[in-house]
Amino acid sequence: AECSVYVSQNVHALGIGGLLYEALQRAPKAQNIVDINACIACGDDEYLNDASVRFHERMGFRFIGRFERCAYKFGRWYDMAWMQKPIGEHLQNQPAMRPFARFRDEICASAGIKI
């Protein structure tokens, strides 16, 4: 499953991104998804740097590949890095993916979210 977390620049380095990713991993893991992937725009200019790649490395992601000049934003072209993190075991007879709707309340309650 591909996942993304965006945190406002004025609250970077407060641990919010890490908390969001920890919470975000609960649902795919409960769905029998065994890997999460992140697609990260890469550049070194006034808009982008390698902070997101470093953050994902700290969160346990590893670099998988890079697509060149495939992301267009801020009026320019950027590369995209793909990173992957295992969150479950790759089994020979992998259980089927569980739809989120079947256990939404359970996941939300474990995260302290009232519906």
Rank of each mutant, 00 (worst) to 15 (best):
A81Y: 14
S8C: 08
Y72I: 07
I115W: 08
M80T: 05
Q92T: 13
I115R: 13
A111K: 12
R54S: 11
E57G: 01
Y47L: 05
D79V: 11
Y6W: 07
L19H: 09
W77L: 12
K73L: 15
W82S: 03
D35W: 06
Q31R: 14
E46S: 11
E22C: 05
Q92C: 03
I107F: 01
W77C: 11
D79E: 07
H56E: 10
I16F: 13
F55I: 04
R98C: 09
K29W: 04
V53M: 10
W82E: 06
Q94S: 10
P95V: 10
W77Y: 14
R102P: 00
Y6R: 07
S8D: 15
I64V: 15
A101H: 12
R66K: 15
G17W: 11
N32I: 06
R54Y: 11
I33W: 04
F67T: 02
N32S: 12
R66L: 10
P99H: 08
I40T: 09
H12F: 13
F67I: 00
R66V: 06
A23T: 04
N10E: 13
I115D: 11
A71P: 00
R26L: 15
P99D: 05
K114N: 12
G75I: 07
E57L: 11
I33P: 01
G15A: 13
L91P: 04
V53Q: 11
S8A: 14
P28T: 02
D44H: 12
F61E: 00
F63A: 04
A27C: 08
R54W: 02
L91H: 05
